[in-house]
């Protein structure tokens, strides 16, 4: 890494931070309980829009892992999400009706909240349809992991996005409010992921899985990125660059070992493909608020005929994290 490019990345990081400050003016605090945050709390950050149905299970899932501070940005929900969140005693909520796209798909907003409230904390940035799974998550709460990361001087923890889907056609996969969406979308692709290294930021770029297979077979280069680094011990000066795929400073992206060893890692189970999906993707297409001119949603709309099922006879049914570990999708590293 030359001095010049180190410097360029430093500038990029500063610019990103300034941008977050500027974009923070778009956020209106609705309820601010951040003064209740205590030193060792793990904070969850999330941007959402119209996710009322998913919220109860989402909150329950992360509360059970040991998170008691939620910081939400509501991007103009009109389905009661906002009212629901207001009632939760562990939620701080900001709202905005400004463009998600122009806030770099929410990253600017979250960068600002992270800088304001995240510093010194372990921070988890997830979407409402993402469920964080890490080694021993069925027997150890999240603070066990973050304590271990602290003791090992590790500042960031990778968790690949694993697209989950139902066996039946997507529009028939109804998930009731409060129900575990992974009971409905319980299948995933186990072994069709493609990885390359991004030389600029040093992160891995992972593509593949059900989405690449079903929607991007003809243009794999446009298949969505699945690499994510959602759990970070936040320091002053950290910024997310694009979604939670990449961060600066670069060192935070080194969640992988290059000498053959395995670092500890987890997965984000992505319960996107439920009955609400076709409608949502139609809506997103008209709102045009997503990455690369919502190309992803255009691909879905093209690929989603009625009765589309992502399931194949080689689809793996989700059991637990140990299964993901054995399949080589995540690793315990040296954590015992």
């Amino acid at each position: 890494m030359s001095l010049a490019s180190t410097y360029r990345l430093r500038l990029e990081r500063k610019k990103k931070r300034l941008r977050a400050v500027r974009k923070s003016r778009e956020l209106t605090p609705v309820v601010d309980r951040t003064d209740e945050i205590r030193a060792k709390d793990i904070l969850l950050f999330c941007t959402l829009r119209n996710e009322r149905q998913r919220l109860p299970y989402f909150m329950a899932y992360y509360r059970k892992l040991g998170i008691n501070r939620f910081l939400f940005v509501d991007n103009g929900s009109d389905d009661g999400s906002r009212e629901y969140l207001l009632d939760q005693s562990d939620v701080s909520l900001w709202s905005t009706t400004q463009s998600y796209r122009r806030a770099k798909f929410g990253v600017d907003w979250l960068n600002w909240l992270l800088a304001r409230h995240g510093v010194g904390h372990w921070t988890l940035v997830v979407d409402v349809d993402e469920f964080f799974v890490y080694p021993f998550c069925d027997s150890r709460p999240l603070p066990a992991l973050t304590d271990w990361l602290d003791a090992s001087s590790i500042r960031s923890f990778g968790a690949m996005l694993l697209d989950m889907y139902p066996k039946e056609s997507i529009e028939d996969a109804v998930c009731k409010e409060g129900q575990n969406p992974l009971e409905v979308a319980e299948y995933f692709d186990a072994g069709n992921y493609m990885i390359s290294r991004n030389p600029k930021y040093g992160n891995l770029w992972i593509q593949g899985g059900a989405r690449a297979r079903a929607f991007f077979g003809n243009e794999p280069e446009r298949a969505p990125a699945l690499n994510k680094i959602p759990l970070v011990k936040w320091s002053r000066g950290n910024v997310y660059i694009s979604s939670t795929h990449t961060l600066l400073p670069r060192g935070l992206n080194l969640v992988y070992d290059e000498n053959g060893g395995e670092k500890a890692s987890g997965c984000l189970l992505h319960a996107k493909f439920l009955s609400s999906f076709p409608e949502k993707s139609q809506e997103e297409l008209t709102r045009k608020q997503h990455y690369a001119n919502s190309h992803e949603y255009r691909a879905y709309n093209k690929g989603l005929k009625r009765g589309t099922s992502l399931w194949t006879k080689w689809s793996e049914k989700y059991i637990n994290w140990r299964q993901l570990e054995i399949l080589g999708l995540m690793s315990k590293g040296s954590w015992v």
Binding site: I195, S265, M330
Partner: peptide, 24 residues
């Protein structure tokens, strides 16, 4: 076993937290 997994990993596996350099 855990220490070996961390230092040597599973041979022939490329994944999010094990990505050997091209020249290994």
């Amino acid at each position: 076993r855990a220490n070996a997994r961390r230092t040597q990993g599973r041979a022939g596996l490329k994944m999010q937290s094990r990505f050997p350099r091209r020249d290994s």
